[in-house]
Simulated scan of single mutants.
Amino acid sequence: MKEYQIDVQLSSNLKEKPAFDQLSFGTVFTDHMFIMDYTEGMGWHDARIVPYQPISLDPSAIIFHYGQTVFEGLKAYNTKDNEILLFRPDENMKRLNRSNKRLVIPEIDEDFALYALKKLIAVDKDWVPSVEGTSLYVRPFIFATEPYLGVRPSAQYSFVIILSPVGAYYKEGINPVKIAVEGDFVRAVKGGTGNAKTAGNYAASLKAQHDAEKQGYSQVLWLDGRENKYIEEVGSMNVFFKIDGEVVTPELNGSILEGITRKSVIELLQYWNIPVVERKISIEELFAAHHEGKLEEAFGTGTAAVISPIGELSWNGEKITVNNLETGPLAKKIYDSLTGIQTGVAEDPFGWRVVVETE
């Protein structure tokens, strides 16, 4: 492997670590962060690990006004043998560059980005929790830093990685959640930025999510932005349905994010010889399948929660219950298999695990 240069400045004021058995999600951050800058004409430069600290930006920085930013999310896991594992991090770096292309952000060297990520985790290795159900959440992100009020791609960027020890994303854990089908707002539309992991997509989702939570729902089920009938995602997750023995997930169409957990679930089902298909599925078809007794399970998939079973769906004034508000056997099997691979307690026939060298 070629030599990579990263300047490391260790913190002289280490933080007190939280109780790892009482972690929430995304509220506590480690002692260090990675930063690398981009300047037009120079490329990416000055890779460094520094103490975790605020970022100083000019008020006219392009990110504040035109939203030119992308991000990723993945996790590091501590095994019973005190080995730190990552789950398919190369896929995250590939997706980061796909998002970069869509937002006209200079691409990063994926191998170097992964090297930097591993080195940062090695520096803050004592922050990787070992309590069951916990992990170290890894957030790489890139944003435009050039001070300029004009609608064009920035000439300057920063690439940052921060780390956060986390517990469960949903307080319900692997228990089924209640979901409202969104009929007014849309998350994204084909031709937009739905297949990029960019902040604007999430900002656009907040109003519907806020309204759903006030009505007692955990999240919303998004329909397509053109006909308002085809299912796309659930909250910030991809979604799967088991209908009459076959697993169905919405096909990638330009407005759906290509989730790495989604990809892994499909490959896992194929490995088990369980029928799985990527296609359009309308909300009418889903409710009809329930009325016919064919809707067996429904669940979301994503890095933060891994698997989130859906127990209730509300649409057009009608509520349906999925699998008696219980976690289905397939969702449980997928969850156990994925988390088993991620945490090193199960075999990994796919080679998805990546070890972080900490010595």
Results as ranks from 00 to 15, higher is better:
Y4T: 00
Y4F: 14
D7C: 07
V8K: 10
S12H: 08
S12T: 14
E16N: 08
K17Y: 13
P18M: 12
D21C: 03
L23H: 09
V28W: 01
T30M: 09
D37K: 13
Y38Q: 11
Y38F: 15
E40Q: 14
W44D: 05
R48A: 01
P51E: 03
Q53G: 08
P54A: 00
P59R: 05
A61G: 02
I63E: 14
F64K: 06
A76H: 06
A76G: 00
N78Q: 14
T79I: 03
N82P: 05
L85T: 02
F87M: 02
P89M: 08
K94Q: 03
R95W: 04
N97E: 09
N97M: 10
S99M: 10
N100W: 10
R102V: 13
D109H: 04
A113Y: 09
Y115V: 07
A116K: 01
A116H: 05
L117W: 02
L117A: 05
L120V: 08
A122C: 05
D124Q: 04
V128M: 11
S130E: 12
S130D: 12
G133E: 03
Y137V: 01
R139D: 10
P140T: 02
I142S: 05
T145H: 12
Y148H: 13
L149Q: 11
Y157H: 12
S158Q: 15
S158F: 04
F159K: 09
V160C: 07
P165W: 05
P165E: 03
Y169A: 07
I174K: 00
V177P: 02
I179L: 10
I179R: 10
G183A: 11
V189F: 05
A196H: 08
A196Y: 13
K197V: 03
A203G: 15
S205W: 09
Q209V: 14
H210C: 05
E213K: 15
Q215G: 07
G216M: 00
N253R: 13
G254Y: 00
E258G: 13
E258H: 11
L269D: 02
Y271E: 07
P275R: 00
P275L: 05
V276T: 07
R279Q: 01
I281M: 01
L286K: 00
H290F: 01
G293K: 12
K294N: 08
K294R: 06
E297A: 03
G300W: 00
T301Y: 04
T301K: 01
A305C: 04
A305Q: 00
S308A: 15
E312S: 11
E312T: 07
S314G: 03
G317V: 12
I320G: 04
L330Y: 04
I341Q: 06
Q342A: 06
Q342E: 09
V345N: 15
D348Q: 10
P349S: 08
G351R: 05
T358S: 09
T358D: 09
